[in-house]
Amino acid sequence: MASNIEVKDLLEAGVHFGHLTRKWNPNMSPYIYMERNGIHVINLYKTVAKLDEANEALKKIAASGRKILFVATKKQAKDIVADKVSKINMPYITERWPGGMLTNFVTIRKAVKKMAAIDRMKKDGTFNTLSKKERLQVDRLRAKLEKNLGSIADMTRLPGAIFIVDTMREHIAVKEAQKLNIPIFAMVDTNSDPRPIDYVIPANDDAGKSIEAIMTQVTEAVAEGLAERKNDKQEGKAEAPAAKAAPAKEKAPTKAEKAVVKEVKEETPAPVEAKEEKVEAPKEAAKAEKADDLTKIEGAGPKAAEALVNNGIDTYAKLAKADPEKIKEILTEASSRMAHLDPTSWPKQAQMAADGKWDELKEWQDNAKGGVE
């Protein structure tokens, strides 16, 4: 498990420093602790809770085998992100976000293939048959492609998630990911809008120490997910030969053994057949309710959903009947980091989900994010 970062560590890294109060985004108010000397201070307890939630989700995505694309083109973040992410073998963009990177992925793949074609030319000797001017042009093209797209050469399909440092600077990446319904993880400062982000990590995205502190935790979580996937594969390979092993052939009985068996059978009386009573499994077990995905409720993350399931609230119908105060008590007992969650609207959302009113639920959640409700 990734080392649980403490509030003290984040404080030392300067993660709590926000922007000037006149530059703030009102939608970040739930994550702001106070104002001091004209600067907003981020609530680090909420940062820790949100970071744990994001790490859990990133770990699952990495364990499923999907790639996570990291985006950070600002000067303070590019070197840190490139260093941390290259160690876990994940794709990253640190130079410039190529427009259509996600929405026009086919064209981007063509550019990557062009880079591979130039490499083949150099290996098979075709490159040496070109004129000096042509070789220079090809080298320049190769260098440009390597600079912009070198880190995504192994990304053969759209990523399973995207992690962004500074959503205001990378607003095009956010819009493209939104359009394709790709989960967005991001470090969000007090001047940014957290509404389009699926997993918000409220943090200072301008200081190198702050970025490094968050990126260390995030990459450790991804590395754990990759390690789990590797272990599962190794266990699967170890079990495969055992399953395929043919059963040992029984030695055929000799004539003498056959004769003894025949003699014993003739002397032994036929056994009285006992009537077997069929035991019917209880109907309740056969009709056991399948647990619902409670993370579809706005405000309920993976850890909150796990706490509810552990307390018997594992379906939308049960959550719809639950008392918000009881839900709050369950969350607080499971972890003090979930004490800030407000489950007042969860039964209402769960009722819509239980009734299959997904469009109505989505509309309600969009309005709630926009501050209407």
Results as ranks from 00 to 15, higher is better:
205 D>F: 02
6 E>V: 14
120 R>T: 08
260 V>R: 10
192 S>K: 05
230 K>A: 12
279 V>K: 12
367 N>Q: 14
355 D>K: 10
129 T>D: 05
204 N>Y: 04
290 K>R: 10
105 F>Q: 03
283 K>A: 13
213 A>F: 03
361 L>T: 07
7 V>P: 04
203 A>P: 01
88 I>N: 05
267 E>W: 08
370 G>L: 14
155 M>P: 02
225 G>R: 01
228 E>H: 05
362 K>R: 12
45 Y>I: 01
260 V>L: 11
90 M>H: 09
273 E>N: 11
308 L>A: 08
75 K>H: 10
206 D>V: 09
123 K>D: 07
32 I>W: 02
112 V>N: 02
22 R>Y: 12
135 R>I: 02
205 D>L: 03
129 T>H: 06
292 D>H: 08
92 Y>C: 07
7 V>D: 03
217 Q>M: 08
367 N>A: 15
293 D>N: 15
219 T>V: 12
330 I>K: 02
22 R>F: 13
332 T>E: 08
188 V>W: 00
245 A>D: 06
249 K>G: 05
360 E>T: 15
327 I>T: 08
262 K>S: 13
359 D>M: 10
280 E>H: 07
237 K>Y: 11
173 A>N: 03
321 K>H: 04
75 K>Y: 10
116 A>E: 13
305 A>I: 06
223 A>F: 07
192 S>P: 01
233 K>P: 00
225 G>F: 03
255 K>T: 09
